[in-house]
């Protein structure tokens, strides 16, 4: 939770290709600083303890649940939130495949999928499952999300041919 008191630190975070300086308590999670300190509300809280994946951000290419990481641990790392992604194949595919309804889980899923295709451009089913089971979607039946990510992977592998 974000609050200010005497033990505040001034840190600089690289978020979405911008250097942002922000005042934090040592105990602040990256999630609370992203939202309340920097106003990037695309990153969503859903449980604050690592269970739901709604708060997923990309840290140096790895999807991380920002509620489980301290803001101070983010110093010197390259952080990407949903606001840092625009017109990516994953975003387009999510829209086209109706891969969300209420949209609350969507930033977390998109960040996760985006990191997945960078790391495993030809990911097989097991890999996709292993990566995406960390996020909960309560609206869809996951089928549309599966179709969205798979269509990006198929398009990528066709490009490579």
């Amino acid at each position: 939770m974000y609050s200010s008191n005497s033990k505040n630190l001034n840190i600089s975070l690289s978020i979405n290709d911008e250097e942002r300086s922000v005042v934090v308590r040592p105990a602040n999670t990256l999630l609370s600083v992203i939202r309340e300190g920097l106003g990037l509300t695309g990153t969503k809280p859903g449980c604050y303890n690592g269970d739901c994946g709604a708060c997923t951000v990309d840290v140096d290419g790895v999807p991380i649940k920002s509620c489980l990481m301290l803001a101070v641990e983010g110093v010197g790392k390259k952080i990407t939130t949903i606001e840092g992604l625009r017109n990516t194949p994953v975003q387009k595919s999510f829209v086209e495949h109706f891969a969300f309804q209420c949209g609350y889980c969507t930033p977390g899923f998109i960040i996760n999928c985006n990191a997945l295709i960078q790391k495993h451009p030809n990911a097989k089913d097991e890999i996709i499952e292993e990566w995406l089971e960390s996020n909960i979607c309560r609206c869809t039946g996951y089928k549309e999300i599966e179709e969205a990510i798979k269509s990006v992977i198929t398009a990528k592998s066709e490009e490579q041919l």
């Binding site: 106003g39 509300t41 606001e83 999510f94 829209v95 109706f98 969507t106």
Partner: peptide
Amino acid sequence: KSIIRKEALDKATGKAKYTADDL
């Protein structure tokens, strides 16, 4: 027709606002 929902782009880019996003 499967018309894309009107708020789809906002939801896919983190711009969609929910109640708790008032800070």
